[in-house]
Simulated assay, not measured.
Amino acid sequence: MPASPLRLGVNVDHVATLRNARAGRNPDPVRAALAAIAAGADGITAHLREDRRHIRDDDMARLKAEISKPLNFEMAATADMLAIALATMPHAVCLVPERREELTTEGGLDVVGQHDTLKPLIARLNDAGVRVSLFIAAEARQIEMAAELRAPVIEIHTGAWCDAVADGRAAKADAEWQRIVAGAALARSAGLEVHAGHGLDYVTAERIAGLPEIVELNIGYYMIGEALFVGLGETVRAMRAAMDRGRGNLGSPEPPSAGRAARDPKGRA
């Protein structure tokens, strides 16, 4: 079966992080979103956290009004966030775990343990015509519960794999990779659309693009960091090229070696 086209969602949260360091207006995450789309991004992701540490309410409203591509609204599964999402009406909502003290999202959403909270929230979003995604670990019980809850999409948390690759922990990287491979296959067999994200760089994005079940990658922090040196447009084009290389090598048996250096925008090691 041929692989589905692979979409790139660019997360602009950390453009807002930099803006908020001076409590001003610049750099503007909406401008960054427009630049990413102009360079080839298929969509924009933004996480409206409860503490508003980066993206703010007006950012979400402006993104919805001004961008020409789908808006993926990341949020905690709370009544307040549901109300904002229903007022904004983004293309998609991705439900994520959230703790005030964390630096970034530390793991997948526990959809098994939070079944009773998630079920009515997912139903409300489904009824409103907003596509629901659950940001979860590649674990069978979480994937099976996502399908039971009628969430049409899951996003596999790739952070543990990416960290192990970057740190040179080969055994850990291989174990996490096998979990992702198995989880993506299980999710697709359950009728779920499969996305992936967290911690991806050029190397890991190229590799995971080779999994035919995955149809979307959402990447932010690495790309915003790279953009400081080469510009956001060039970073988007380089990431798109890495994903296209990976998609062209479906079935490649070897995951990236732990500690392997990220490729440069020309594709060299």
Rank of each mutant, 00 (worst) to 15 (best):
residue 1 M to H: 14
residue 4 S to V: 01
residue 9 G to L: 10
residue 10 V to S: 07
residue 16 A to E: 08
residue 20 N to V: 04
residue 23 A to S: 11
residue 24 G to D: 13
residue 25 R to S: 10
residue 25 R to G: 05
residue 26 N to K: 05
residue 36 A to Q: 04
residue 36 A to P: 12
residue 39 A to W: 01
residue 40 G to Q: 10
residue 48 L to E: 03
residue 49 R to E: 11
residue 50 E to G: 03
residue 55 I to S: 12
residue 56 R to E: 10
residue 59 D to E: 09
residue 62 R to L: 04
residue 63 L to K: 12
residue 68 S to H: 03
residue 69 K to G: 03
residue 73 F to S: 14
residue 73 F to N: 11
residue 78 T to E: 02
residue 78 T to K: 11
residue 83 A to D: 11
residue 87 A to V: 03
residue 88 T to G: 06
residue 92 A to P: 09
residue 95 L to S: 12
residue 100 R to H: 12
residue 100 R to I: 05
residue 100 R to Y: 01
residue 100 R to K: 14
residue 101 E to I: 00
residue 105 T to A: 10
residue 106 E to I: 02
residue 109 L to D: 11
residue 111 V to C: 15
residue 116 D to M: 11
residue 117 T to D: 08
residue 121 L to D: 13
residue 123 A to L: 06
residue 126 N to K: 15
residue 128 A to V: 09
residue 134 L to Y: 03
residue 134 L to C: 13
residue 136 I to W: 10
residue 144 E to G: 00
residue 147 A to K: 14
residue 151 A to W: 11
residue 153 V to E: 14
residue 154 I to Y: 03
residue 158 T to E: 00
residue 158 T to W: 05
residue 159 G to E: 04
residue 161 W to D: 13
residue 167 D to T: 09
residue 169 R to W: 05
residue 169 R to C: 03
residue 170 A to F: 04
residue 171 A to G: 10
residue 173 A to Y: 04
residue 174 D to R: 15
residue 175 A to G: 06
residue 175 A to Y: 08
residue 182 A to R: 08
residue 183 G to C: 05
residue 186 L to S: 02
residue 187 A to T: 05
residue 188 R to C: 00
residue 190 A to R: 15
residue 194 V to K: 07
residue 199 G to D: 02
residue 201 D to T: 14
residue 210 G to C: 08
residue 210 G to M: 12
residue 211 L to Q: 15
residue 214 I to T: 10
residue 214 I to M: 07
residue 215 V to I: 12
residue 222 Y to S: 12
residue 224 I to L: 04
residue 224 I to T: 07
residue 228 L to R: 14
residue 228 L to F: 13
residue 233 G to S: 09
residue 237 R to P: 05
residue 241 A to N: 15
residue 242 A to T: 12
residue 244 D to G: 02
residue 248 G to P: 13
residue 251 G to R: 05
residue 251 G to L: 08
residue 262 A to H: 14
residue 262 A to D: 15
residue 263 R to H: 09
residue 268 R to T: 11
